[in-house]
Computed example of a mutant assay.
Amino acid sequence: MQLGDCLFDSQRGLLTHQVTQEQWFLPRAELQVLRLLIANHDKVVAKHVLGSADAEHLALSDSSVTRAVFMLRSFLGPAHEHMIETIKGKGYRLRLESQSRKRIKKPSTPVWVSVFISRLFGCQHRRIKLGVGLLILAIIPLVVMQWMGQFSNHSTYTEPFSKQVITLESGQKVMLISYAKSKTNNTSLLALTQRLAQGIKLCESAPWKQVYLSLSHDKQVFNITMKGDKLGQSIVRNLKLTDFRQNKVFISDQWLAEVSLCE
């Protein structure tokens, strides 16, 4: 299926950008969200529906759905990211390009314009009247299109909870972007972000440019998506950490040693 400059293979879960030739095998959250948006295109789909559980997976948290939408928009690129609209307080809607570029019907010359021209020039000046009428017909659509253009690419974005840039020994900069359902009671997310930042700082260099973080509503699942490039190819790595203990750790020294964040 064509989505802007991207081709989506739903069966393989593959999104291919036909301009940059980047390919992305969508992780579970992004794949589920995109499939549901396509199945209900041009309709508003609530967050809890986009994050619903299935036979093999638990339900996604609202923050995971938000992060998935952010990643999908990022891959679609600035020219087409507006295809996924945020409907405040309701959910998201996929607006297909064929629907978003409807032709604007040229309005006919208003009656008052015709009357004004007739009185101004008289009936004997039909050529002048016709010329002025055509000029108005040419100007009005341009004004209407310019006015509508101010809103056609407008989308409401969910702002990240926090952003942090860390610098590796090689001088490379990595941005950590955290998402949360609200701006309160995010002590655990902040602590995990700092802990992960400490682990990444140990790398002399790494292929990652952005790292997206979110904590599930029940604070039992910590989602990490790392995006960057290696040997000229775009790469994405997804990590999902679960901890059902009362005193949660998620990121331990042993985990940092085993997961190899630098690669």
Rank of each mutant, 00 (worst) to 15 (best):
Q2W: 12
L3K: 07
L3T: 04
G4N: 12
D5W: 04
L7G: 12
L7F: 15
F8G: 09
F8K: 09
D9K: 10
S10V: 13
Q11Y: 14
T16P: 07
Q21T: 10
Q23I: 11
R28D: 15
A29C: 08
A39W: 02
A39R: 11
N40Q: 15
K43T: 15
V44T: 15
V44G: 02
V45W: 08
A46P: 02
A53C: 01
D54G: 03
E56H: 06
S61V: 03
S63G: 05
R67S: 09
A68C: 11
V69F: 12
F70E: 11
M71G: 02
S74R: 11
F75H: 03
G77A: 05
A79Q: 15
E85F: 03
K88L: 12
K88I: 13
G89F: 02
G89Q: 02
K90E: 14
Y92K: 04
Y92W: 11
R93A: 11
R93G: 01
R93L: 09
L94P: 03
L94H: 03
L94A: 01
S98M: 11
S100C: 09
K102N: 09
K106Q: 06
K106T: 09
P107Q: 11
P107N: 06
T109R: 06
P110R: 02
V111I: 07
I117C: 06
I117R: 06
S118L: 13
F121K: 07
C123M: 14
R126M: 05
K129L: 04
L135C: 04
L137Y: 03
I139Q: 00
I140A: 08
I140F: 01
L142D: 03
V143I: 13
V143Q: 04
Q146C: 12
Q150D: 10
Q150F: 13
F151M: 01
H154G: 05
H154S: 10
S155F: 01
S155C: 02
T158K: 10
E159D: 00
P160V: 04
F161N: 03
K163G: 00
V165G: 00
T167S: 12
L168Q: 09
L168S: 08
Q172T: 00
Q172G: 00
V174Q: 01
K183Q: 02
N185F: 11
L192M: 02
R195Q: 07
G199D: 15
G199Y: 08
I200D: 06
A206E: 07
V211S: 07
Y212R: 05
L215D: 01
S216P: 09
K219G: 03
Q220T: 10
Q220K: 12
V221R: 09
M226F: 03
M226E: 10
G228V: 03
K230M: 14
Q233A: 14
I235K: 08
N238R: 11
L241Q: 10
L241K: 10
T242H: 03
V249F: 01
L261Y: 05
E263N: 15
E263I: 14
